[in-house]
Structures are given as C-alpha cells and as structure tokens.
C-alpha cells in the first residue's frame, strides 16, 4: 500500500463540501423543475399539436437523446456567447441540463399520455369536458402513475448529471472535489467522500419522490425504483 487512508484532511474542508452540496441541490432542482415543465409541454405538443410542431418536437428529442450531455453543455456554454448571449455558468448549466431532461421527459410523459385508454378520453368529451380539462382531470394522474418509475429514475440521472457541470467550473460538488483534492492531495479519500454525499442525495431524492407519489396517488403507491426498464425511454449516465 502506498499510504493509509486519511479522511480528516478532507473533512477539514467541510464548508466547501457543504457549499458544493448546496450548489448541486440548486442546480438539480432548477434543472428538474424546468426540464419536467419542458417535457410536459413537449409531450402535449407532440400528442395534441399540429404535425409541424410534432415533427419539430421529435427532432429536438432525438437530437438531445442521441448526443452526450457534456457536449450539449459545451455548446450552451461556449457557443451562446458567440451569438451575443453571455450566460453565467450556473444559467448555462441549468439550461443544458433542463434541455437534456426535457427531451427524455417528453418521451416518457408522452408514453404515459398514449397509454390512457381512448375510451376514457371519449368519456370525458361526451361529458362536455374541454381538451384542457381532460388533460388536467382525466389524463394527468393516471399517466403520471404509469410513468412515475421511469420519470423518477430519469430525475435521478439528472441529479447525478449535475456533476458534469464541473466541466464548466460550476461550483458544485464535483468542482469542490477537485479543489479539495488539489489542496489535500488526498484524491481517493476526497472522491470517496464525494461519492458518499452523492449517494445520500440520491436516496434522499428517491425518498422525496416516494412521498410525492404517496400524496399524488392516494391509493396504489408506485415506488421509485432504480430500474431503468427501457433505456430508450430513460437515459443512463451522461
């Protein structure tokens, strides 16, 4: 063995770890909120919209699902200033992450919408409900219930994906790691610590999804498993 593992030097940088964790949480929650809204709009646009809109949305979906998040991040961060849009690091990171999540969420949510039996939508129509009321009262909850496992595993991937933002020096956990590592020279200990923080955050988020599921679906609770049943739908990693 080259040396004994020592965590104390790493833990001396607790304030940096906490700052990094907070930034990661901010980054993740903003990206998730924006990405899910984008996905919802995308899914509705694809199923209800005119065909040109539907084609535009599926192009967006395919482009973002078939290129790496890191490259998307570089495009947003380095390329937007070229067309005169100077975006701060955090904004670039949230934008890239949200666009990426939005693409996956569009497909996931759409799968939920089309899984609702046609007769239920027709029942809504014949009761005089408007398209919007049908989405709101008849489609929303059952569709969300169907896709909940896939959607929440995708959200977990977005949480973990925030680590990529260290590539443009967003001051989140992974950046904190490289700072601490360069000061302590305790690389392995630093990354083990960071990994443990990410693991705790992931389980915390899963617990949160479980609670939300319990509130939304009064009855059958769909637990958010880490199963990625269909990698075509959900991503995996970057």
């Amino acid at each position: 063995m080259a040396y004994e593992m020592q965590f104390q030097p790493v833990l001396n940088y607790a304030p940096d770890l906490i700052d990094g964790t907070v930034t990661t949480l901010v980054l993740a929650s903003q990206s998730i909120a924006l990405g899910v809204i984008l996905g919802g709009l995308g899914a509705i646009g694809r199923t209800e919209g005119p065909s040109w809109l539907s084609i535009a949305i599926s192009t967006y979906v395919e482009v973002f699902r078939n290129t790496p998040l890191l490259v998307q991040l570089f495009l947003v961060f380095f390329a937007l200033p070229m067309i005169g849009l100077q975006v701060p690091v955090m904004v670039a990171a949230v934008l890239a992450m949200a666009l990426n999540l939005g693409a996956y969420a569009t497909e996931i949510i759409r799968a939920g919408i089309v899984a609702i039996p046609k007769a239920q939508i027709e029942a809504g129509l014949s009761l005089g409900l408007s398209r919007f009321q049908i989405i709101r009262h008849i489609i929303f909850i059952p569709a969300l219930m169907i896709i909940y496992p896939a959607l929440t595993s995708q959200l977990t991937l977005t949480l973990l994906g925030t680590s990529i933002a260290s590539a443009i020096s967003a001051a989140e956990l992974s950046s904190a790691a490289s700072v601490i590592e360069s000061k302590t020279f305790r690389s392995l200990e630093t990354y083990i610590t960071i990994a443990l923080i990410y693991i705790s955050l992931t389980f915390m988020f899963r617990f949160l999804y479980w609670i939300i599921g319990k509130i939304l679906f009064h009855r059958k609770v769909v637990t958010s498993k880490n199963v990625v049943e269909d990698p075509l739908l959900t991503g995996a990693g970057a």
């Binding site: 027709e122 014949s126 409900l129």
Partner: peptide, 30 residues
C-alpha cells in the same frame, strides 16, 4: 355534449377517481 349522455362498452370509468368523484367531475368542472 352537455345534452347527450353516452355509455361505452368498456365502461371507461376514471380509475384514479372514486365513484363519487367519477360522477361529480363533470358537474363540478363543466
């Protein structure tokens, strides 16, 4: 459609709503 009721072969009840909620949905929102 407010004046015409329709019943389907497949019942088409809304699975996430109770019987009461199934029935009161349209009277309330429409």
């Amino acid at each position: 459609r407010l004046d015409v009721g329709m019943v389907f072969q497949s019942y088409a009840l809304f699975p996430h709503l109770t019987v009461r909620e199934n029935i009161t949905l349209a009277p309330r929102v429409v």
